[in-house]
């Protein structure tokens, strides 16, 4: 490519070879050079484990830590994975979908209040949203175990109100798992929602009112569509990690509430690496597919 405005057919002949073409080439190579650390990082920490994971998923399933694993291109691992563990797959996706929906229902009003109504309390409220991250995920989930325990006040109140039977419990139920997921991933919903709501020019909402929108219509036609990028980002940030989560189901659930994460974890525990890997790859492919469909349907690229 010649960047000069002169006659292109003459320029290469007139200019000595090095002069005309070396500056762009040098620029291009320095761009590659700048990409190198990132590329190396990706190869070392993403690509290599990925390849290893896919390879493991195709090892002979009869292998063990003692006998070692042989690469036998055992595609049957995938068939077995779906065959044996379809239920935890479906349950896991269902739990995380419900938790994501709950996060949206709880998180949207919260983010809205912080963005538009908090005034000088805005920063404090944001800190409170992030505050749970100051302690470990595990500790907080254990705390939920106490909150929902059979002798805890939550169960007590629920019994008095007749919401659960006298011998009923909350712990070790799907309810507890979903509650734990909702609690743990709520900040991932609130923060992107807050960011996109905060960006909305308040005059647009006034303009909607001026153009005969009641507050509810103004919300539906202006605020909500403009906050869609936050809704999409928030649901992805909530759904993706919760679909693979196993801590909540392990600490707050029982064997009947197992999610796919628990199965993968237990396959690993017993050294059944090929099955664990096949399940992981399947989970990943399913999530990527769902996210792709979701983003297309949500039509975020239409915004702005």
């Amino acid at each position: 490519m010649t960047s000069s405005a002169g006659a292109p057919s003459v320029a290469p002949e007139l200019a000595p070879d090095g002069d005309a073409s070396s500056p762009p080439r040098r620029r291009r190579s320095s761009a590659w050079f700048l990409l190198l650390p990132g590329a190396l990082w990706l190869v070392a920490f993403f690509l290599t484990p990925m390849v290893q994971l896919v390879a493991t998923s195709l090892y002979d399933p009869s292998g063990s830590e003692e006998t070692g694993y042989a690469m036998t291109w055992a595609w049957g691992n995938y068939v077995d994975a779906l065959d044996f563990y379809l239920e935890p797959f479906v349950r896991g996706f269902a739990y995380s979908a419900i938790a994501t929906a709950l996060c949206l229902v709880i998180g949207y009003p919260l983010a809205y209040a912080i963005a538009f109504k908090a005034g000088r309390w805005k920063n404090l409220m944001l800190v409170l949203v992030i505050a749970p991250f100051f302690t470990s995920f595990l500790v907080r989930t254990l705390a939920w175990k106490l909150i929902l325990s059979d002798n805890g006040f939550v169960v007590g109140i629920a019994k008095t109100l007749g919401l659960i039977a006298d011998d009923g419990r909350l712990l070790a139920t799907g309810f507890a798992v979903v509650a734990g997921l909702t609690y743990n991933f709520l900040p991932f919903m609130v923060l992107p929602l807050y960011v996109s709501l905060e960006k909305i020019d308040h005059r647009l909402i006034e303009a909607a009112g001026d153009l005969y929108s009641s507050p509810a219509q103004g919300f539906r036609k202006v605020t909500l569509p403009l906050s869609m990028p936050g809704v999409v980002a928030g649901t992805l940030l909530t759904f993706i990690p919760s679909a693979g989560d196993f801590i909540n189901a392990q600490l707050l659930g029982d064997t009947t509430t197992q999610m796919i994460g628990n199965v993968i974890e237990s396959r690993f525990e017993v050294g059944d690496y090929p099955a664990a890997a096949a399940l992981s790859v399947t989970l990943m492919v399913l999530i990527v597919a769902m996210v792709a469909i979701y983003i297309r349907r949500a039509g975020t690229e239409e915004l702005l």
Binding site: R203, A207, D210, V222, L226
Partner: peptide
């Protein structure tokens, strides 16, 4: 029955 042309237009970007 009053409408406004806002100082910065405030057109709906979406």
């Amino acid at each position: 029955p009053v409408n406004t042309v806002f100082q910065s237009y405030a057109l709906f970007p979406h």
